[in-house]
């Protein structure tokens, strides 16, 4: 199996006046193609920081990170931007759809950024939305949809560019439990189709839908089953 994520000993700290706050303390992680991984951690554990680094949206002071074999730790802003578009599909807790664009336009966006013509992008985006049972809502604006529907649109947008990695940040956080379960079921189906998924959550129930769980506590990462800190969650 191809390695999608390889993180080695990443340290990240924030300067706070003369002091510094270390939020990631030597994190290492490997994720292979086809995995469905949940990173489980309480608020303030550093899971969002880790997600931002995995998503090529934040930098780190020490350590190394390869995404699909490419050395992210050596990349400049333009290269990181390219990686976000080409290799990662983001699914956010608050969907982060652009309100003034239609469902179709939102889903087309990653392809347009990649340089597709709007005709081709629309064709592919419509297909994806059809697959996610949102084909009849193409011309709707996000505020005309329910939370679950908006998350489906966000998933369609994440999938449309065929990224190597789906990165979901608390994907059910803004949904009721029934809709949340539907979304998680959808994740399972996508994973069965071969998509690599990394999901960040604070909810063990949600994390349990993943095939593998790692826990993050105070900036340190533990595989599930490791004693001590993992059991204290």
């Amino acid at each position: 199996m191809e390695q999608v994520i390889k993180i080695e000993n990443i340290h990240k700290w924030y300067k706070m006046g003369e002091n510094s706050l270390e939020v990631l303390k030597g994190v290492s992680l490997e994720v292979s193609e086809g995995e469905f991984l949940a990173i489980l951690g309480p608020s303030g554990s550093g899971k969002s920081t880790l997600m931002n680094i995995i998503g090529c949206m934040d930098d780190f002071q020490e350590g190394q990170y390869w995404l699909t074999g490419e050395p992210v730790h050596e990349m400049n802003d333009a290269q990181l931007t390219y990686m976000r578009n080409a290799q990662i599909g983001f699914i956010f807790q608050k969907y982060h759809l652009i309100g003034k664009y239609t469902v179709l336009q939102n889903v087309m966006m990653p392809l347009l950024i990649r340089g597709y013509s709007s005709h081709k992008a629309a064709e592919i985006a419509a297909e994806k939305l059809e697959m996610l049972e949102m084909g009849n809502r193409l011309s709707h604006k996000p505020n005309e949809l329910s939370g679950g529907q908006q998350q489906r649109v966000a998933i369609a947008r994440a999938l449309v560019g065929h990224p190597k990695l789906l990165l979901a940040d608390e994907p059910t956080g803004a949904l009721d439990s029934a809709t949340g379960k539907e979304v998680l079921k959808l994740f399972e189906e996508l994973n069965e189709k071969g998509h690599t998924i990394v999901m960040i959550t604070h909810d063990l129930q949600v994390a349990s839908h993943a095939k593998r769980i790692v826990k993050i506590i105070d900036g340190e990462l533990f595989e599930e089953g490791e004693p001590a800190k993992a059991s204290s969650m």
Partner: peptide, 16 residues
């Protein structure tokens, strides 16, 4: 700002 963030997360460059 949020829209800019989304576009950047999706891969929009500074130049764009």
């Amino acid at each position: 700002t949020s829209e800019i963030g989304i576009l950047k997360a999706l891969g929009c460059s500074r130049r764009e």
